[in-house]
């Protein structure tokens, strides 16, 4: 409707006469249109962000009200006073603290290990010359296409053979270095470590390990941080393989398995389940608030590099 109404005042001004207003007309028109457009822009974006954030708000609403309150119609849409109570129930309902600790151990070990091995391999692929380098790197990229979930059954049989079923290392060891990590660090090293620096370090009699430690690592730290964040995130959120291999040993459950148990066992008590869920996403929320810039840059860079 407004688009139709808009031109009228401009046309009337134009008929009124002077060349100045004639020139002013279109630009004013454009300015008004751009104001309207930016208003629409911000509305759409704000709506999208609200939709993104709403489930978290809802998590808190359910988790902070008693189950009885949430069962009324229409449901309460503002937070209530029962969060502590619900959280306590959730923590007592499943081995919650144990699961948080397990998840932290798993994710932290995987992250440190991925960073270490990927930096070494990425450095080798970016800066060293050796027979078969091109082919081997292509091979690394090719392995990214192999869907990992599908090795589920043999991996489980293999872990049984090792005697690792139910042990945290069954989750940690297969993830200690990833193709994506090697690829990412190769790009980071190639883009941030100047050859002159490597040559200079070499002249000064630095060993190859010294070079990695004193020259490569300090220059790649920002790029490595992004990889570290995402590696931790994926390890923390991983569900299927931990469920399969740790499922039979409740004391080694990760937080995701504990959540699933919580939701499966107490599904009638939404408030309690939601309190547990909220507690499980809290560490990641804190990390995201602290590192959102790196993570956004990482997602966007990842797209360009891919």
């Amino acid at each position: 409707m407004t688009t139709l109404e808009q031109p009228t005042p401009l046309r009337s001004r134009r008929t009124a006469g002077s060349t100045a207003s004639l020139q002013q007309g279109p630009s004013l028109h454009r300015a008004m249109r751009s104001v309207r457009r930016s208003w629409l822009k911000y509305t759409i974006l704000t709506l999208a962000v609200l939709v993104s954030i709403f489930p978290f708000y809802w998590m808190f609403v359910v988790a902070s009200n008693s189950n009885a309150v949430m069962s009324q119609f229409p449901p309460r849409v503002i937070p209530g006073p029962n969060f502590i109570e619900n959280a306590r129930l959730a923590i007592e309902g499943v081995p919650f603290v144990q699961a948080l600790t397990n998840s932290f151990v798993v994710a932290a070990t995987i992250t440190v290990s991925v960073l270490f091995f990927s930096t070494m391999a990425g450095f080798a692929f970016a800066k060293m010359r050796f027979r078969g380098r091109g082919g081997l790197f292509t091979f690394v990229l090719g392995t990214m296409l192999v869907p990992q979930q599908l090795g589920l059954i043999p991996l489980f049989i293999l872990m049984g053979y090792f005697g690792w079923v139910g042990e945290l290392r069954a989750v940690i060891v297969p993830a200690m270095v990833t193709a994506f990590g090697v690829f990412w660090m190769r790009q980071v090293v190639a883009g941030s470590v100047p050859d002159e620096l490597l040559e200079a370090a070499r002249m000064d009699g630095c060993s190859i390990f010294g070079i990695v430690r004193h020259v490569v690592w300090p220059s790649v730290r920002p790029g490595a941080a992004v990889l570290g964040l995402y590696t931790f995130l994926f390890a923390w959120n991983d569900f299927l393989w931990p469920l399969v291999v740790l499922g039979n040993n409740p004391s080694n459950h990760t937080i995701q398995i504990a959540l699933r148990t919580l939701s499966d066992t107490y599904y009638v008590n939404y408030s309690m389940v939601m309190a547990g869920t909220l507690l499980s996403v809290l560490p990641l929320m804190v990390a995201f608030v602290l590192f959102s810039r790196q993570m956004i840059a990482g997602a966007m860079e990842g797209a360009v590099k891919g």
Binding site: L45, A48, V49, S52, I53, P55, F56, W58, M59, V62, L233, W236, N237, F239, Q256, L259, R260, S263, Y270, V273, M274, T277, S280, V281, L284, M285, F288, S292, M295, I296, A299
Partner: peptide, 22 residues
């Protein structure tokens, strides 16, 4: 806006499924 849009992506599928289930 960007971080607001990326928040869902860092949440675990388990947590997401629980909330949407409810």
């Amino acid at each position: 806006f960007r971080s607001g849009l990326l928040v869902p992506n860092i949440t675990s599928v388990v947590a997401i499924a629980i909330v949407f289930q409810s």
